[in-house]
Design a protein around this nucleic acid. Structure first.
Lengths: 244, 244
DNA sequence: CGACGCTTTGAGGAGATTCAAGACACGTGG
DNA sequence: CCACGTGTCTTGAATCTCCTCAAAGCGTCG
């Protein structure tokens, strides 16, 4: 609380709105005019926090609206009829979730914090207003949704490849997404467990572990627990080639 | 041409538009008011035809717009860097494709006719008009896109299961989609090859063949070449249960 | 009718899983 | 600050599912 007050009285402080959000062009406003961004700013709830293990929304619950992650990371997971978890995606800052509930008005997935995170929330009941007042934003959501479809197809393509290629691609994919968002692309923390990685990639967690050790033994990466450093990006890319 | 003229002078003839399309509630107009449907009718090109093996659009080509299949069937396929095909989905009447090009304005996938087909086409350049003139339609597209995402997650869930469960689920999935669209759910023609089924399900075509024969030997189905009859739907469902 | 592709069936092998057990890391409480 | 316990991670060995390769049968279309 005291920290917050200091910030508020600081001369450099400005409240974070959509206009000056540092996720510009990564979150929803991409491609909108200033008027529309201003309108969006009035609808969005900012600065929501979740601790590791806490959910933002649950599978089966009514559609909550769209969520834009500002910091931290999360996993998006679905469940089969027996309650087995399927990790659909890992979510990084600037990425959006919520599409899994938009069509049916019931969430298909659960979003769970992998570490302390902060997010913006566009409530479901305000989306209808946007259809009339800011159709451009709905179009942006449509584009985002289609981006998600594209990346699902990419994942489907990867599922045809060996476990080694999947892990190499996974590391490079996280690296690239962090780079685009201004984080270090060569050194970062894997906030998810081996089990969650394996679940997401469709391989056993023991296999993930073996392959990570293999990459380390070949000096492609250095791994200490969850801390990852990419030593030889080129060799990781080579792993994706047909010869392997 | 002469057939067309006969139709036009026939007293029972009415041009097919979005207002009287027999795909009502399956194609895009779902949830739109009459004015919007009328507006859409002016933008859509109807009665496009492709023969078996011909493409509606190709991966890598500029976004053509949205396609609603009216009759026949198609496959939606992506390709990896080595040109290997990945069958992303099979498309049945009333279903929509085109999302793979909407975000990037370049198609990610190729759509190929599996048999003679007929489709409606909403051209790409007219979609921008819709954002302003008929935001409701963009919202419908967003919902459809999210439906696609949901079904991709379902496919991801199935990929965790055995080859037998995948084939059982595939047959039941086609059956259900045909039923919803008013076709026979127990007897139909599989317009795709075993190879394409295997590619889509992530298993070898020999495995598909073996499992289809297994199902036939157990009297769950009857298969003659591509003609399929479901004899015991319940037993196919049983195959999806954990005990198997 | 011949050729080609699709489908079926068999045999052997490879990659990944499962099971098991020990090492390690982390958070808690003494 | 260290001991402790729990969950995560690593490593090994045996097993299994499915793939690959091969060849024959079938269907279809020019």
């Amino acid at each position: 609380m005291s920290d917050l007050n200091i910030s508020k009285t600081s001369t450099t402080y400005r409240p974070v709105t959509c206009e000056n959000c540092n996720l510009e062009n990564l979150c929803m406003p991409k491609g909108l005019d200033k008027q529309e961004i201003g309108g969006l700013a009035l609808l969005v709830n900012r600065n929501n926090i979740r601790q590791r293990g806490e959910a933002i929304y649950h599978a089966g619950s009514p559609f909550r609206g769209m969520i834009a992650l500002r910091s931290g990371s999360a996993k998006l997971a679905s469940f089969d009829q027996n309650g087995n978890e399927l990790v659909v995606a890992f979510i990084l800052p600037g990425e959006i979730v919520g599409f899994d509930g938009l069509a049916t008005q019931l969430h298909n997935c659960t979003v769970t914090a992998l570490e302390t995170l902060n997010y913006c929330h566009l409530p479901a009941h305000k989306i209808e207003q946007l259809v009339i007042n800011s159709p451009g934003l709905i179009y942006v959501l449509l584009q985002r949704s289609c981006n998600e479809l594209d990346s699902q197809v990419q994942k489907m393509l990867m599922s045809r490849h060996s476990a080694e290629k999947r892990v190499a691609n996974f590391i490079l994919n996280i690296s690239e997404r962090l780079r685009v968002r201004g984080y270090s692309e060569l050194e970062f923390r894997l906030s998810m467990s081996r089990k969650e990685i394996g679940n997401h990639l469709g391989i056993a967690h023991e296999t993930v572990s073996r392959i990570i050790q293999l990459f380390q033994s070949r000096q492609f990466i250095e791994i200490k627990s969850k801390q990852l450093r990419i030593i030889d990006k080129k060799e990781l890319f080579n792993f994706l080639q047909p010869i392997h």
